[in-house]
Amino acid sequence: MSALFPLRVSGAKSSRRGNVLVGPVDLELSGAGTTVVIGPNGSGKTSLLAMLHGTNRLNAGRIDWAVPQDQARAQQAFVFQRPILLRRSVIQNIAYPLLMRGMTRKTALNRATEWSERVGLGAMLDRPAQSLSGGEQQKLALARAMICDPQLLFLDEPCAALDGRATREIEAILQSVAASGTDLIMTTHDLGQAQRLAQDVVFMLHGKVHECTSAKEFFTAPKTNAARAFLRGDIVE
């Protein structure tokens, strides 16, 4: 467990031009390992993660990490639902956060090479990032997020649109990242993946946290009807 936790969220709300994206949210995360956020499309998962990370405006309520906000932010990284690629080579993409933090080129490129090998991109360092396949792009985004050794990694559907094998590869990386002490907060539509990775589950519905329990409890004995219906694969209104 990292120094960022426990995380206390109370009455947090994020809106844009009058539309509430997510909230009000009350949440307490002890941050032991991996927290998976699930819920139907449009339920506010992405918005919740962005609000916790601090990239979506907090219009009401509080988000309290165990350390001051700016310190917490510096210890986090975010992998987006749609990978954002810089128009540069693979290695330049991965090294970018280090270069922005003032690390020397040589060290940054060395570490980027290490990480690219760790995620299996070692053979395509000099390719333009845009030429990578969807799965490779996700791996690039993951390596770029991990290169600053964050204590907390947000992942927004890291395996959407990937096939079984690519998903397994990403999950293996995530598990090794988690094993090395980085906490994860991730969203997914894949209930199997949630079961494989989650210690805690946050179930979102209509922009609010509907249920927040340990994974074991959530998957064996969900408390609410909506969660039961969601687990059955019914359409949740």
């Binding site: 990239t55 932010r73 510096a74 990284a77 954002i84 810089l86």
Partner: peptide
């Protein structure tokens, strides 16, 4: 145009 592509990433990296 490039900025709309990069926005979320660069904000997240706090550059």
């Amino acid at each position: 145009e490039l900025w709309t592509d990069y926005h979320d990433l660069l904000i997240s990296l706090n550059v």
